[in-house]
């Protein structure tokens, strides 16, 4: 008996049914998979991508790259501004979005494309202030509110939340605190393009005025263009896990020879603010609905 077991007899009809069922299951899986891949790889908004930027070189620790630098301009009254070029609309892949970018001439016929997309990492890309055409945000660098006077006692002389002024930093040639050496640089912690926003979405910045920057500006055209009067500014977000590192803030930094450098105490990343180099980052797109 050919049909002793309990399985149905193999027949043309049965083969046909098997083919139909198997084929539809397979196509269903393929469609779902393709839709899933499309969905998960679709750009969620405009801007971003791989680009070159200038920043403080990472010296030690798990951080993947350096801390991005903010080019500084000083206005007629002596207030510090972070360069924020006029926003323009570009179209890429059928998506229209705003960018703030400009060419900075670094001599010898070469130029650097500065874009505020440099700062689209670590969730900063979702901050109101990072939008090129953000309402009510200007370029001025402002002091933190409240001021970190425990770390930088000189900040007792300034008003919290005020714009940073060149004259506030007049002691930069010999300023020092209990961390590291005196005369390396006078720091201030502050915010940028973060007025009237909640504390957790303020863009933290670090401004240092130093004679070393003035010396570097003599042979480095990029420094000369972006760091007037010895001022240099960074977006103060560790590129590793987005903590806020500190310059001359914690004495434990000397364990890593970082007492005169930018030190992140979460995972001991060290950035050298006096070693600026071109690096690469994958800038993240700003979320949709921002434009």
């Amino acid at each position: 008996m050919a049909n002793d077991d309990n399985y149905p007899v193999e027949s043309d009809r049965r083969r046909f049914v098997k083919g139909v069922v198997g084929g539809s299951v397979l196509s269903g899986l393929l469609t779902t998979g393709a839709a899933g891949v499309t969905l998960s790889t679709k750009p969620s908004g405009g801007g971003g991508g791989a680009m070159d930027y200038f920043g403080a070189v990472r010296e030690l620790g798990p951080a993947p790259r350096g801390l991005p630098q903010i080019p500084i301009e000083i206005d007629d009254e002596g207030y510090l501004q972070g360069l924020w070029p006029e926003p323009e609309t570009v179209e890429e892949g059928g998506v229209e979005y705003q960018v703030s970018r400009t060419e900075i001439d670094i001599g010898g016929g070469e130029s650097v494309t500065y874009s505020t997309e440099w700062f689209q990492y670590c969730g900063l890309q979702t901050f109101e202030g990072i939008r090129p055409d953000a309402e009510g945000q200007d370029e001025y660098l402002r002091y933190d509110d409240p001021l970190p006077t425990a770390d930088y006692p000189w900040l007792e002389e300034v008003t919290a939340g005020n714009q940073m002024h060149v004259d506030d930093f007049e002691n930069y040639e010999d300023w020092g605190n209990n961390v590291g050496d005196a005369g390396v640089g006078q720091p201030a912690a502050g915010t940028w393009r973060s007025q009237d926003v909640s504390p957790e979405s303020k863009i933290p910045i670090l401004v240092i005025r130093s004679t070393r920057i003035e010396e570097m500006a003599q042979d480095d055209e990029w420094i000369a263009q972006t760091c007037p009067e010895g001022f240099i500014a960074f977006v103060n977000k560790c590129t590793h896990f987005c903590c806020v590192p500190g310059y001359k803030k914690l004495s434990e930094a000397s364990n890593y020879n970082a007492e005169n450098k930018i030190y992140c105490n979460c995972h001991q990343s060290v950035y050298d603010p006096f070693d600026i180099a071109q690096q690469q980052l994958i800038s993240l797109p700003r979320p949709e609905g921002d434009e």
Partner: peptide, 12 residues
Amino acid sequence: DAANPAVTPEII
């Protein structure tokens, strides 16, 4: 209060 990502505590 909720953690503020704009400030890193001294001991983390």
